[in-house]
Amino acid sequence: MILILEQILNGLQLGVMLFLMAAGLTLVFGIMNLVNLAHGALYMVGAYLATYFFQATGSFVLGVALALAGTLLVGIVTELVALRTLYERDHLDQVLATFGLILIFNELVAMLWGRAAIYSSLPAYLQGHVEIAGSFRYPLYRLLIIFVGLAVAAGLWYVVVRTRLGMLIRAGASNRTMVAALGINIRLLYTMVFGFGAALAGLAGIMAGPIYAVQPGMGELVLIQVFVVIVIGGIGSIRGALVGAVIVGVVDTLGRAFLKPFLATVITPTAAENAGPALASMLIYLLMAVVLALRPEGLFPSRG
């Protein structure tokens, strides 16, 4: 029982990480109609900057703050230099151009920090465990990730639902011609949204840095799952991104943990040994297929 609880917590933690990535990607896709494959590159930039600034300043908090500002800046510059020209273009052109950006970012990072994974660690006060109940203990840093992720979700909800900026974002997602016709500077709005999305991806990267391998190309490893999240959640919807991310996180985690023992009770153990891991890694894609078949728009489609 405790194990199931612990795995659900693990799933939630994976889910909020995916959410931070998915939120930016779905906003950019929904509002600017831009397929941004380079979103994973911004995640990598966040991880590298946080590691670098943490080591340079000796303070984890300062490192995180500088890295967030840095990814925001990188995102804005990327939008101004490369992506502006792509909004009116075909999706295929966008895919090609942003794939090119992935290569450029990966090579830039390799030039600056080398191809080998770099050392990153947690400050001592974030290591260790929290005793939740009896023998149930959970790593402190993982709890922090869940907390930060949920706080960001709440903050995003507030910005999108309760502020003027959020109103413009929602309006832009529904009908951008109309928004532009009402005299809103849509270009500035786009730059802000993209920078904001980049900072969120950067935040995911910053939190991933101390526990994953910080190396060129690390962003592409998570990007596919993030696309699954936004397809399930509904493109352009923050709420969909959150629900989709938590569903994907929990389903993936529980599948990895319990599918094989569960199958072993239904089919022979040897067959379960082979089918379990294969099926567990397919599970989120099967889920996506089911969602696409029943609700092609995703669970929470943004009205448009």
Partner: peptide, 21 residues
């Protein structure tokens, strides 16, 4: 137990929880 994880997987927390159990 013999556990096979996805190639290129980055997060092993679920497997580590199973391992400890």
């Amino acid at each position: 137990d013999e556990v096979y994880t996805r190639l290129g997987q980055t997060d092993y927390q679920a497997e580590l929880s199973q391992l400890r159990a």
